[in-house]
Write a protein that binds this DNA or RNA. Structure first.
Lengths: 210, 210, 210, 210
DNA sequence: TGCTAACCGAGACGGTACGTCCCGTCTTGCG
DNA sequence: CGCAAGACGGGACGTACCGTCTCGGTTAGCA
């Protein structure tokens, strides 16, 4: 598990009173709190500021808007995902699927993840922020899982680094996309049974259940 | 390809002037138009109404809000998806993936699909509307593809109807979720090469690319 | 006391189904009813129509708008004013003042009389309607009172008809205007004591109270 | 002639940006301007705000509604009334009557005075605002006129302060009410001749013209 | 220790869109 | 053809937030 500070874009800060560091965390915590209570579309930056004991201007000095603030507020939650070495590729997949689903059950993420993705379709800077703060950081799970599976001989080693990246990205899209779709679009439960069936599908292919 | 009328929730309308049927379609068309130009967050219902040549009240009489309107406006686009019989399961998958990706490239869907899903996480009625107007309707593609593959002997027949539904739902979540994630979250192109690699993964499993 | 039907401007009614006469009175009664409950600014013509068991179109076919409807609805109440012969000019004035004040205490008149007068400042037709339906009809009280006082020798006979009209109009403006101002602007009670003091002032002049 | 600032109900304003004082006057001036052009029922607060170069919210932050705004906008005009010492009670009355009538000829007052009075019949707070901002302030004219007449010996001195107030109020209701009724209800001109006849009536009583 | 620049809270500001309300008109089918 | 019913185009409402701006006051770091 990694540690990271979202670090809003602060200027070099040459003279004068420095920005309060405590305010940052108070704002992010207040953001998560309001997200839980009111959801994405009910998130008011004035309310966040007042809960954080901070003026609206202070908030706007550090984040350009709602989307960026929420990305930073939520990103840290994703760093809690871990890949246990459970002995087989299928059970590793199953385990990480269940963890990810649990994260998507939390109201902060459930209500805001798709919202910021939606915003990002018209905002390239936001898309990059999501990529670096959330998506790319979690590819480590796939990289690690593939390495272990290769070590066990469950899957062949990579032909070359390019193919390795391509395969990692593909598997990441499949796992993350499928879980999100199940949880948020189909709105069906992600339980151990479903996780195992997904893992089996990924390991053996559609026809492999025979 | 199916035909359907989204049919906003109209009361039985016993007496009085009947609702204009033309207004419905004009409103939905204007909605798509504004979505293309301004995106989800730039969609103003007043603007939609005025483009449709309709009063704002007429719009609100038929749809409770932005989300529901957009679901109905966009749903019809999904009915254009078709499953060509291309001779093999892998190429059927690849073909439908490319079609779905092309749909997600359209600005109307690209910008609004995730937005309504995000809203639906706090609005059960909206979630059901998305389910019935968009999601469930497209499962036909998976049902048909599986039937063909079974006919060809590529995959075993279903043990029982319950298992058939479960498998259909799983495969649908995998394909739709993966394409959405690739296109909107990872923001990488869905080209023929990627589509084939995804299809191969699904048919043969993670280890099968060796 | 007179009897009158306000008679909205009905066309000659040549062919077809004739207008329901009962509807007229139902509409006026409903208007008074809603005025009592909601006041002038809370008076909705749709509400009036529905209380009268009538369609909005029926109402608009008979009255051009809210102001005209209210004038007709309220005018009839003024016809209940009477001038008792109480033996002296001062007590006649006092009696009619109290009657008029009682009328202004009724919510229908209290809330709507000044409102239609206000509207009439920019609507000449409305002003004439108020004049003929309400104001001019009540000048009879002053005419009668003056005649009696002249009969008693309390005031001199009129020099000529022009002067008679001028004096009648002046006295009418003084009495009606003063009572309205006391009741609605100063918002002080019009009781017997005040009525007598006003009557005394009018009969003997400002200095006469000594 | 007095000076006064209508002073909308502003909170003590301890911290934060202070309210713009210039905005107040701009809003009141714009209100009078729109009243002249469109009248009471054509007065749109959005239009007032935009003419004042102010956001609608700024206006609503300071006045609760149309009626209160108009009272404050119009009140200042009444402060221009003056009581010239013309040598006799009758001519003093006549002079103030003509001034008051001239004020009622102005479109801003003509169209709005009765309207706010009508509103005030169902709004006690509004009634008090009218009382303190307009009515009570002008009683000074009667107080002054009575004092002069007493100085000249035209009317007897007051027996006691209570009687003085009662007489002042009565005379005020008579003069103001009569002029308003003549100008707005009867809709007849208030010229020098009529003013003198009214003054004579008040000084000598109904029978006194003999 | 005292200056000073950037910070801070509070909250008013111009602005935009909202969703509602009611207007007065029109379009139905029934009697 | 009048009528009840009710949808229609239209326009103003008063509210909610936005993101910016002005205040007076605080606080660190340099002199």
């Amino acid at each position: 598990m990694q540690r990271r500070i979202p670090s809003p874009p602060s200027p070099p800060a040459r003279g004068g009173r420095p920005r309060s560091a405590a305010a940052d965390e108070a704002i992010l915590a207040a953001t998560r709190e309001v997200l839980v209570e009111a959801g994405w579309s009910g998130l008011r930056l004035g309310e966040v500021a007042s809960r954080a004991g901070v003026a609206k201007t202070t908030l706007y000095r550090r984040w350009p808007g709602k989307s960026e603030l929420v990305v930073d507020a939520v990103a840290v939650l994703f760093d809690e995902l871990e890949l246990p070495d459970s002995g087989s590729l299928a059970s590793d997949v199953s385990a990480v699927v269940l963890q990810f689903a649990a994260l998507l059950e939390r109201p902060e993420t459930r209500t805001s993840l798709m919202a910021v993705v939606a915003e990002s379709t018209r905002d390239e800077a936001l898309r990059r922020r999501i990529g670096s703060a959330i998506v790319d950081r979690q590819k480590r799970l796939v990289v690690e899982g593939r390495a272990r599976a290769q070590g066990r001989g469950e899957i062949p080693p990579d032909a070359d680094p390019v193919a390795a990246t391509r395969n990692t990205d593909l598997v990441f899209d499949v796992i993350a996309g499928t879980v999100v779709h199940r949880a948020l679009v189909s709105a069906q439960p992600v339980d151990a049974d479903w996780a195992e069936r997904l893992a089996l599908l990924l390991v053996t292919g559609i026809g492999g259940t025979a």
